[in-house]
Design a protein around this nucleic acid. Structure first.
Lengths: 117, 117
DNA sequence: TACCAGCATAAAAATATGCAAATATTTGTA
DNA sequence: TACAAATATTTGCATATTTTTATGCTGGTA
């Protein structure tokens, strides 16, 4: 594999490497979503949401469609959901490690029997 | 999903967001690999390889085993290969876009009929 | 035209990441 | 003990990413 392609793949994963962007993609599982709606879900201000969307757009992960003054976003390739599903499985397989790292991150870990979404 | 877990997932993807680290994981498909071997494959100096391995280790993506003075690395959960496989499929589905971005990155794109690895 | 809503982009400050050079650590061996 | 090999960690610095805040653009409507 050539250098540029490697860099490109890395960029792709890097685009997924942000909490807000992961939430955005997860939200888009249910179909199109306007920036406003995302803003509510993410509890972030409009500008920040737009910026994160720009990152996903630049990596061709999402597409946008304008209707009047509102813009709807959707995932370009639904296969990305499979990707996230597998990632979730990996997390579940290593729940114990995950907890350790969460603790490290300053979180409280998961409650008894609580699953990862 | 709580904040800390989101951050953790993001960290996971961020760990994959580096060309060298992707090559390392791909190399580990064939099984264990010593740092030396990785050094050769990556054409990077020892220190840099160790640093990248440290990132993967900190995210629990790889494990290491010491035998004498050499350290062997392996992937913790083979399911990560599935993850990369799906990512590859996504890339292939969007070859044209990919090419555009590669060009943007200064690469030469893919040759005629050349597949992505 | 004037104005507002909904998004996008820009600019600046804070934070994190990547990289290279130097230094440490660990293990085996003379 | 002294030394070499293999790997890890640290340090300093350049770059990139994140976050906030401010500004710009476009489409609808009075």
């Amino acid at each position: 594999m050539q250098q540029p392609l490697r860099r490109f793949k890395a960029e792709f994963f890097k685009a997924l490497g942000h909490p807000a962007r992961l939430v955005i993609i997860d939200q888009l599982r249910e179909g199109e979503c306007s920036v406003q709606e995302l803003q509510v879900v993410l509890e972030m201000d409009q500008s920040s949401v737009s910026q994160q969307l720009a990152v996903l757009r630049n990596k061709n992960i999402v597409d946008s469609r304008k209707e009047g003054t509102t813009v709807f976003y959707r995932v370009r390739d639904p296969m990305i959901f499979q990707l996230l599903d597998i990632a979730r499985e990996i997390f579940n397989n290593h729940l114990i490690d995950t907890q350790a790292i969460l603790a490290q991150l300053g979180g409280e870990g998961l409650g008894d029997g609580e699953a990862l979404s």
